[in-house]
Design a protein around this nucleic acid. Sequence first.
DNA 1: ACCCGATCTCAACGCGCGTTGAAAACCTTT
DNA 2: AAAGGTTTTCAACGCGCGTTGAGATCGGGT
Lengths: 208, 208
Amino acid sequence: MTGAVEQGDRKRRGRRAAGQDTRAALLTAARALFVERGYEGATVRAIAARAGVDAAMVNHWFGGKEALFGEAVLQLPVDPAAVVERVLDGPPERIGERIVRTFLGVWDDSGGGAFAALVRSVTAHDEVARVLQEFFLHTLFARVLASLDVDQADLRATLCATQVVGVGMVRYVLRFEPLVSAEVDTVVAAVAPTLQRYLLGDISAEPG
Amino acid sequence: MTGAVEQGDRKRRGRRAAGQDTRAALLTAARALFVERGYEGATVRAIAARAGVDAAMVNHWFGGKEALFGEAVLQLPVDPAAVVERVLDGPPERIGERIVRTFLGVWDDSGGGAFAALVRSVTAHDEVARVLQEFFLHTLFARVLASLDVDQADLRATLCATQVVGVGMVRYVLRFEPLVSAEVDTVVAAVAPTLQRYLLGDISAEPG
DNA sequence: ACCCGATCTCAACGCGCGTTGAAAACCTTT
DNA sequence: AAAGGTTTTCAACGCGCGTTGAGATCGGGT
């Protein structure tokens, strides 16, 4: 019975017990580490360690780090349909406020780390900027603007992007006070009118 | 004469001719590469190659990459005094316009590469964010706001930062159209009123 | 004119990265 | 129960990184 005792915690070689979805575990670990450290900072070894498997599994299941990144990043932490619905649900004259509240609601939760990592990924990896543009402009603001029926929709969308992205940069990445500690209501009061004007107001040279 | 011909282009060992300021050459090369590729992308070998010297010179003159970075980055590519003067030179009711024009004037020149690299450096190196905050808020906007005499100056400064940084992100890093190709006047017309309000207008909850 | 220190190249070190191939352990099929 | 394919760990490779020490070369002080 006792015979030669198995070294219990020593990782045995070969196939593990069934029911362990290594692929999914790697994807989860990769998303978390990409968010924490960005593309270059999230090493294959660290991802595999967090997933509790060997680094070679990344190549076995995805073919390489690049491909794993491709699969992991494209699953954004927000549900586009829900966001659009939340933004459009209410009177048009307060849509700016709802955008700011939704934006802060999504990113404040992670303490800003998620947004910072997204920015890090954008600068390290050109493809991410394309994906973001697709999502931000075409998926989100295109629908919002379609329901508002204004001219220069594309320009208005990018202007909204400047203000929203800017708030994210200063609040989550640069961490300039007092905006980091500012209440949501304070930010809303200041920024919402800007979005309101970009979406529905006059954005051309003001007459006299 | 012909004897043993010296291999002319082969780098000779030992001390070079006098008058070659290796330290300054390294600093210049480092600034250029940090701007082009960010902190992690600017390798010691590449910096030394651009300066035309060996990589070991970085350690000899600065003690390491980190210290070289510290000296190189603190010399920003803009002259604070000139910027402040240019922004303040004119009527207060058009200060928003002057800020946007100055900002685009500084960064449009490099085709956006310099701004993108700055962002890359910020996300790769926490210290840069601190330096930027010092420069942006305390050196620039503190003086601007001091001359305007308004309440909540710190909050107003960070709000301006959100809009200005946001324009830079969308125009230079994310490259969302149509803002990338937009004329300066178009951007000014849309964004200047926002800065005008952040600096001099009402940023609290609007009365009903 | 000599020497000593400052300056510079070269070769190599150790590290961590992404990746690869072989061998071990497990599961499924027959 | 034997066979065969799938999953997994392990060991090692090649690369580029920042850094180091030895030695060659030049310049300035005496």
